[in-house]
Nucleic acid binder design. Sequence first.
DNA 1: CCGGGCGATGTGTACGTTCACATCTTCCGG
DNA 2: CCGGAAGATGTGAACGTACACATCGCCCGG
Lengths: 363, 363
Amino acid sequence: MSSSEQARAPESPSVAVPASFEPPVAAAEPERVKAPNIRDVARVAGVSYQTVSRALNDSPSIRPETLARVQAAIDELGYRPNQAARALVTSRSRTIGVLAAQTVHYGPATSIQAIETAAREAGYRLSITNIASSEYASIKSALDHLMAQSIEALIVIAPQVRVFEALKDLQLAVPFVTLEATGTNTAHALWVDQIQGARLATRHLIDLGHTEIMHLSGPQDWIEAEARMQGFLRELGDADLRTRAPILGDWTAHFGYYAGLELLRYRDFTAVFCGNDQMALGFMHACRESGLSVPGDMSIVGFDDIPEAAHFAPPLTTVRQNFAEIGRRTIEVLLGELRGETGLSHEPVQPELIVRQSTARLA
Amino acid sequence: MSSSEQARAPESPSVAVPASFEPPVAAAEPERVKAPNIRDVARVAGVSYQTVSRALNDSPSIRPETLARVQAAIDELGYRPNQAARALVTSRSRTIGVLAAQTVHYGPATSIQAIETAAREAGYRLSITNIASSEYASIKSALDHLMAQSIEALIVIAPQVRVFEALKDLQLAVPFVTLEATGTNTAHALWVDQIQGARLATRHLIDLGHTEIMHLSGPQDWIEAEARMQGFLRELGDADLRTRAPILGDWTAHFGYYAGLELLRYRDFTAVFCGNDQMALGFMHACRESGLSVPGDMSIVGFDDIPEAAHFAPPLTTVRQNFAEIGRRTIEVLLGELRGETGLSHEPVQPELIVRQSTARLA
DNA sequence: CCGGGCGATGTGTACGTTCACATCTTCCGG
DNA sequence: CCGGAAGATGTGAACGTACACATCGCCCGG
């Protein structure tokens, strides 16, 4: 086995051939037929290549019967337009770049899926690149990779704070949109109104009579984490309640759990607003282990409304974001900008509070 | 506050203007400078364009100092090679297609992320396409979209049963790999040994003394669901235990919940092996509502080990799959095949049973 | 001192498509 | 019945790159 492996030196015609005859080997693809091109189609259809091109780009000035002949030739040959050639001559790549982080999370994943679908329908393809870490170098590298593909637009679903710096460096010549941002950068942002969502969650707790409310935030450099924190603090401020320093987490259930274990050593709060559902899950776990009942002793609100949230123990009160809607709107805005339209509606998508069983009136 | 919110209408300069004057509008990019090409670089560096090409493709026969001059010119002009032109002339797109479904799920998402990273390192880009439904038309459309991009290889992360049919139709000329399949199609599959994983889970329950074990399966047309079911049935058979018809679900927590409510009306089983963690979560929810304690009255095993599983109530015993490893191996195999190597190792990745607190010895 | 060979660099061409413009056809009004 | 416009189709060029081959300069051995 391993000796036959060595003999494989591809196409070294002579070598030390103990393997006497060496059969033609060409067993692979014998007929590497060139893919048909526009001229082949033209020949079959009995027209010029330009006419085929017109047929492909549904030009108005082509006779229906000519079009039919071309179409028949295309089908017969199984012709597919060469995107590379097309991109070269039109200098339009028909590619939208996506700079993502944390694509395994429900929110980004859902948005990306909606974006992909909408983009495909509009004849665009997506090029998704994940950043390994939120270090500047990693972001720059991902951005370089995207720019190398001459993307026509950019969508950012990542810790935008640092990304913005990187974007400034490469003087970006394409329209871009960042998802899930706050209102700080309205020109390029398309976002769920995170602040409003956080306010809804916080007000819900306040309405239930809670006055000592904790906040588990997302990572500092995620703008949406920042926004949720802002909403939380503002709502608390409006109600003249004592504000306590939010805990900076990393979105994971693990963090929620360990933070919970730590915080629950001092039971000086009765409710917690978590930056996302995963952290809420971890926090609930910590409550259980600490002997606290949810919502009896502790009310918990999450954010995102991942599909699992309805089945947590107890089912989680949370803020729903319409990620799919965001995705669709993103492509809409971007395509509009590519068409040269401007002043498109960047109105925030409104989140919705979903009340389940993890919150209760303060005893 | 809310009034200032309204005032935000971003950059609508005047509005109600009867559109009489319509300013030149060309406010967009005034200087649409053409991107520099290989000849521009050559001119600046004082060499021929071919020398620049050599520098870009690190040809061996170029003097270090010439290379340096070219590099300097590249930096000065901010030159980026045009991928379309390169693809056109080499007839290599350097694109790997991914046919995906359910990318919001943890497993696929994790694999895709690993695939993307590995592909990028190898100089390939990914083109991901989601299928809207598992109908044939939808699969075909997605596959067409990918083939139109002249992908060099295809990765399938979707209900493979139907995809295989579609693949047969378009006589696919590129190497492809399907993820998370069973061992039925070893030539093209690279997979976690799902059968073995299911056996581990089932044996664990048997070892705990359970004899009446239920299985909540994934959708029928997902090969991995089929494989897990097979593993379950075989292990049960080996132990001479009564087998009961698995329930066919859809991977969601919702399904696990409603199926649980239904099944628990007859308490003729003491353990359940769920096809994934989400369904296990839903099932646990149903147990709670039915007044059953987990693991006191009901032992539950999941599959996947999503990060949240450790924080379920109780923490879930499950089968861990190394999705990232799968992703890396996928690219490895594919790149090997593109290089013409063959007979690469398609050894299955071994899953691992993670015992937590959702299973207990039968009283 | 010359010729061969090799390393370094330059020139021509092709990839498949679209754009700009030229040409051919058709039809209609004067 | 003819001129011209509009519609339909064809021809030449260009996009930016890599490959094949040609050329140049240099070093070394005879």
